[in-house]
Amino acid sequence: MQNTKTILVLASQFKGVPLIEEFHKLGCLVLLLCAEKTRCEAWPTHAITEQFYMPKLNVFPDILHAVSHLARSYNIDRIIGVDDFDVEVAARLREHLRTPGMGDTTARYFRDKLAMRVLASDEGLAVPDFVHLLNDDKVNHYLSTVPGPWVLKPRSEAGAVGIKKIHTAQDLWRYSEELGDKRSYYLLERFLPGEVFHVDSIVFEGKVVFARASRYRVPPFSVWNEGGVFSTLSLPETDPLAQEMIEFNARLVHSMHLARGITHTEFIRADIDGKLYFLEMAARVGGAHLDLHVEACSGINLWREWAHLELAYLLGERYQCPEPRHDHSALLICLAREEHPDLSGFDAPEVVWRMKRAFHAGLVLNSQDPARIDELERVYRKRLQTEFLKA
């Protein structure tokens, strides 16, 4: 047991089960520290050495004290945060315990929407015009020179959470007054209509070793603000736009100094000029079951590969990503009116996963034919909207 590695997994949400199972399969001791609200979830207890709960994982110094106490009994080799908020907490814990991995400075680039935009802009990468909601003169200059509408974004929320669309300067200053001393935690960005895309990738020793590009048919921002069926489709790997995004993603990984891990990056192709613009990047597996979407088109399970690359680094070995498949896939998810919606009527052979979660309906589609995926996604999205979507 001398060479057995101990992994501490932080989970403020119920996610990362394949990661935990893979670490266990690889012979690691897995400690799970999760939020109290996840106590009744189906955690893989067979793969967990010890499991601990706290009311919230992002309360300092409570989390520092708790993990430091845990470290008296376990030599913690790696700390993994599975959710957006856990990434930041894990970084602070690594700094405190001097555990290898991404520290506060690098983590800030992946959690702070302002920091990541400043860095990308400094590197000459295209980002929508933005301004920190801090200095009145700079904000007024921005409002007078950058055409609206704009989006007001919290710097550290996950995904589309807390984003507001702003149409006039008066609206902006009204929201600013409501925010009070919290306004410095926000930025204002030009709203660019267009198609939204994402790239999900694996990084080892600073290089992207796997990447797959997809197009949101209905992006998270639209679902968050207007409701509807969330949907994304993989892009053919030969698509010039997919190749451009994957190259863009690789430049971002290099700029943000990520040594190893999983990334989820979002872009928009603006209607106004057809250019790709960077929106945000996260150092984690994408949410909303995007891991299943990526696995359906490539055969690559991002959670399991995360475990493999972390252990490879700890053992001083070279990580080798499996050879991916070259299929096509789509993911559809919505809130459902019924507690347990019956999805058996979605019976096309391309359906490879049906969601089993109360008051949710979801599907993953897989085929070697991109046209079939495109057709079926349109049909099933309409059916989910009319048959199951919660108003």
Rank of each mutant, 00 (worst) to 15 (best):
V67W: 07
S234F: 02
A391L: 09
D77I: 05
M281Q: 08
S329Q: 04
A348K: 10
K56H: 12
Y185K: 01
A126D: 15
Q51L: 02
Q170W: 00
H360C: 13
C40S: 14
W173G: 09
D104G: 04
G103H: 14
T263H: 08
D342K: 00
L70H: 09
I76S: 02
D369E: 13
V199Y: 03
W43A: 00
L8V: 09
V285S: 07
K164D: 15
A371E: 14
P236R: 06
V146R: 04
S121K: 14
E323C: 06
R337L: 07
D200T: 09
L384Y: 03
R318S: 11
P193N: 08
V379H: 08
M54H: 07
L314I: 02
E226P: 01
E88S: 12
A91G: 08
T386D: 14
S144K: 12
A336E: 04
G287S: 08
H96Y: 13
H328A: 01
I163L: 08
H308K: 14
C297A: 15
V127Y: 04
V294L: 14
L26D: 00
R92F: 11
V229A: 08
N366H: 14
E377Q: 12
P220E: 07
R381M: 14
V379W: 01
T45C: 03
T263V: 12
Q243H: 07
H257Y: 02
G180I: 10
L114R: 02
Y74E: 05
R304M: 13
K153S: 14
K390Y: 10
